[in-house]
Design a protein around this nucleic acid. Structure first.
Lengths: 229, 229
DNA sequence: GCCTAAACGAAACTAGGCGTATCGTTTCCA
DNA sequence: TGGAAACGATACGCCTAGTTTCGTTTAGGC
């Protein structure tokens, strides 16, 4: 059990897609199954238990002992699928967020693109203590660069990518200047929301989201921007 | 020892100013000292050890056992001054940041006010792994509302207060509209920097800080803003 | 000098939790 | 049936935050 990913033919879900891998990772696709098959039931039960604990009580409540007990599995089973507690938590959070993927809508207006992209997400993260969860995952990321990269790959970059595309479309439409620093603009759009989410000095309300987006858009457009729709 | 703050006449430094309290907290100012006096040497040694560990290796390296050993004190002594490991770390970080307090300068120009306020701070937080430290403290704050409030009181609110004052001066000068949502503007100014600091997707460079401030200012001014100085 | 009080360092202790190891059982294929 | 891989149950090792105990130290008052 010393090195699950190296010893087992089936890679843990954390390194594969959301669906547990059935076929041996390094074997031909038609190779016969060797040994007992992995249990999807166990996999789902573990994720469900972890999600419940994570979102209702925070990362510190996601104790591997407690998850194992609630899921009706052994700890060794958990470690066959996920290398660390944090990667399990990351997967659990991601499965919750999958329901609200970045909506890629081309409304013809940058403001509407961004509002339709960001408001559902802001509502989601404001609906439960996601701020706390994210803070705890970000903290865990500080000690593990690979985990940090995975966190960004799953949670940060997809949202930036969608907003980046919206900004590029707006640039092509002449709605924003051609020399806008896109990456800075993305920070201006997402930064305020994350700031409130993580520091908790004020609430992330619908009103705040709209105001922050409008203010950020004013800044992105500069003085050569078109009139507000 | 069960409840240091309640049992000892001298309040721990965490609840007082930076200077250790010598006089009994609840006794008249001229009441005679009872018992052995607290050791300033121990207090400083603890803070120094904690700071060193925190800033060079992160919060997880601030083990109370290790701090005690390095400071040449017992763990019980640490707990006489600070109720938890996190509060010690918070104090350690604050003592580091004391060197760069928000510079309240009235330059007559909002942009210059903000740049002079934010650039030294951004340089400081970018100079060492403060992002990691902050992330870890924010995570700790999720489980302890009192700690979260203290964190905000010491690290977030003073900087916002200084920028708030600059914005209000600018409003009086007619440099920004009178109806600007100041708290949203503050999020627009600080949010992007914190975003990069905590998520690490991009670096917090001098150039970034200036561009982010300029872009935020454009947004704050809206279309009725005056020309850039 | 003695008494009382409070703080000290040294050391032991408790409890929780991450991650590992072991073993008998189960589920597959050849 | 044999071999392989996964399973659950259980025990284990280690680490660390926080607590407790005890003899010693440092003060003021009498």
């Amino acid at each position: 059990m010393g090195e699950p990913a190296a010893k087992t033919a089936n890679a843990p879900a954390g390194t594969a897609a959301d669906v547990p891998a059935d076929a041996p990772a390094d074997a031909p696709a038609d190779a016969p199954q060797r040994g007992r098959p992995r249990s999807h039931r166990a996999h789902q039960a573990i994720l469900a238990a972890a999600s419940d604990l994570l979102l209702n009580r925070g990362l510190s409540a996601v104790s591997m002992d407690v998850v194992a007990e609630r899921a009706g599995v052994s700890k060794a089973t958990i470690y066959r699928w996920w290398p660390t507690k944090e990667s399990l938590a990351l997967e659990a959070l991601f499965s919750e967020w999958s329901a609200v993927q970045p909506a890629v809508r081309d409304t013809g207006s940058l403001r509407d693109d961004l509002v339709s992209l960001i408001r559902p997400w802001a509502r989601l993260v404001g609906s439960r203590p996601y701020g706390a969860v994210i803070a705890q995952l970000i903290a865990a990321a500080q000690a593990d660069p690979a985990f940090a990269a995975e966190y960004r790959r799953r949670f940060v970059e997809p949202r930036r990518e969608a907003a980046r595309a919206a900004l590029q479309r707006a640039e092509e439409r002449g709605e924003i200047p051609a020399d806008v620093r896109i990456e800075v603009a993305l920070d201006l759009i997402y930064g305020p929301i994350y700031h409130r989410l993580l520091h908790g000095h004020e609430a992330v309300t619908d009103r705040f989201v709209k105001e922050a987006i409008d203010m950020a858009l004013n800044g992105i457009r500069g003085r050569s921007g078109p009139a507000t729709a």
